[in-house]
Design a protein around this nucleic acid. Structure first.
Length: 489
DNA sequence: TCGTGTTTACTATGCG
DNA sequence: CGCATAGTAAACACGA
């Protein structure tokens, strides 16, 4: 039994265990296809002989472990301290198993999976909410369960997060894939070309260092680690994802939600969902129609894009008005058929192979983290102090109080869904997103009740991770940011 | 065959 | 407008 502390493994931790980690990771990879272990407890002690094979390090990212054998931090509805509206936490997930993942309708649900479903309010509305989440900010979208909204993080950041989440000095490409798909539902259903982008990013980005697999190590590919000197840049948001278009909806799912839409007038919706389609209540359809009318989504919706979607050749850019030129036949005269998205199968396979997702990355927990316990995200995605009157400045940006809600928010009633204007969206700064995400990574425990605190303490006791280590994260975190967080804590 | 890794090309976006 | 960054697509090589 070997216990790894975060100081040992991330990001500049001792490399004394590196060989063990590599070997264990290789073993884990060998068993990758059978990673169906359920959590064998919440201890953060990492046992090389079993936990690495079960990727327990990912399990440790379960913030609100709402599994049936774990106390549920939240029960019922909570007035979310951040956004000032009703939201359901933790315990809601089992009650509405598919709430956050309408695209997985019919898929076996893992009871107690900490699906946060921050703004999903039931199976009928969740799909809609995914669609109407306009100008989303990460704290308003449950990326873990919302298959419609592409996370606003750059691939480099996603990779970095995966690496950091792994708590290992190096991880395999497949682990990166897995972490991303585990924690961002979007990628479970998206065209798998994002994996190409991940690989492209790993190869091209100086931040990532390839660690070749030892000769005697079985498995494919090598390991990847983050260059510590770039880690802070990544985590501090220096590597920004370019601003997102107003709406990034997974057209593959959009097509399922709105089959045959192109044959209908703009703004209209199918009255009855057919087989294999998502069932959307009339109320939800009304909301969606209102949304479309308000935002003009359909005005920008290109039926040709839908065709592309049907054929599986989709990219987020295409879905949001990116008029790609006619494909230029370069380097080859052979026009390959567009790759059909294998995401549904992928998802099925994942469910079968992986069982419960190991990489619980609960965005609700991010919201409810200690950091956010005193901060909120207003409609402009700015952090706002809740309990305090004084304003805050994060990374040079003023943090204001929530000031306005979109009209559609009211129409979304208790859903609490935020519909942000484009201007508001444009104000979304990746620094803050990364800040929050990183803050979560460092302090992923909600401070909502004793159970949560107990778990946190338990983790700290068992994992050998102290707060300083969490806050320090080597050089991966800029000092000013750390001090700000510490001041919040 | 498939996963992995590299490379090139192109386009979009944001910013000075 | 030019540059840097980022995303997408594709070709290709290599090894398990």
């Amino acid at each position: 039994m070997l216990t790894l502390s975060s100081a040992d493994i991330w990001p500049e931790g001792s490399v004394a265990l590196e060989e063990e980690v590599v070997t264990a990771a290789a073993q884990a990879e060998e068993l990758d296809g059978s990673m169906t272990h359920s959590s064998n407890g919440c201890s953060s002690s990492v046992s090389l002989d079993d936990s690495l094979t079960s990727l327990q390090w990912l399990q440790e990212f379960s913030i609100i472990n709402a599994s049936g054998n774990q106390p549920v931090p939240f029960s019922g509805q909570n007035q979310h301290p951040l956004c000032g509206h009703q939201r359901l936490l933790g315990s809601e997930a089992p009650a509405s198993p598919m709430a956050g993942d309408p695209a997985s309708m019919g898929m076996p649900h893992t009871p107690g999976k900490p699906t946060s479903a921050a703004f999903s309010r039931g199976p009928s509305s969740s799909a809609l909410l995914g669609l109407v989440t306009y100008g989303h900010c990460p704290e308003e979208v449950d990326y873990k369960t919302n298959p419609h909204i592409k996370p606003p993080y750059s691939y480099a950041t996603l990779i970095c997060m995966a690496m950091q989440a792994s708590k290992k000095s190096k991880i395999t490409l497949s682990c990166i894939y897995k972490w991303i798909t585990d924690n961002f539902c979007y990628f479970r259903h998206a065209d798998p070309t994002w994996q190409n982008s991940i690989r492209h990013n790993l190869s091209l980005n100086k931040c990532f260092i390839k660690v070749p697999r030892q000769k005697d190590e079985p498995g494919k590919g090598g390991f990847w680690k983050i260059d510590p000197q770039y880690a802070d840049r990544l985590l501090s948001g220096a590597y920004k994802k370019r601003r997102l278009p107003p709406v990034q909806i997974n057209p593959a799912l959009q097509a399922r939600v709105r089959p045959g839409l192109q044959a209908r007038p703009v703004g209209s919706l199918p009255a009855v969902a057919g087989p294999g389609e998502l069932s959307i209540s009339a109320e939800s359809q009304q909301l969606l129609q209102e949304f479309e009318e308000a935002t003009g989504v359909d005005q920008n919706w290109d039926p040709c894009g839908a065709e592309d979607t049907i054929s599986g050749a989709w990219s987020p850019g295409k879905a949001c008005g990116y008029k790609r030129k006619q494909p230029v036949l370069r380097r080859t005269t052979v026009v390959k058929a567009p790759r059909r998205s294998s995401s549904p199968l992928l998802y099925v396979d994942e469910q079968k192979e992986l069982g419960s997702l190991k990489g619980d990355f609960d965005w609700d927990a991010l919201l409810d983290s200690e950091l956010c316990g005193e901060l909120s995200l207003d409609s402009t995605c700015h952090l706002s102090p809740i309990e305090r009157d004084e304003d805050l400045t994060v990374r040079g940006r003023h943090i204001g109080r929530p000031q306005q809600w979109s009209p559609l928010e009211a129409s979304a009633d208790s859903t609490g869904s935020h519909i942000l204007s484009e201007t508001q969206q444009s104000s979304l700064d990746f620094d803050e997103e990364t800040f929050l995400a990183t803050a979560f990574l460092q302090s992923p425990w909600p401070e909502e009740d004793e159970g949560g605190q107990d778990k946190r303490i338990d983790f700290l006791c068992n994992s050998g991770v102290n707060l300083d280590q969490l806050l320090g994260l080597g050089d991966s975190f800029s000092g000013d940011l750390s001090s700000k967080i510490e001041s919040f804590l």
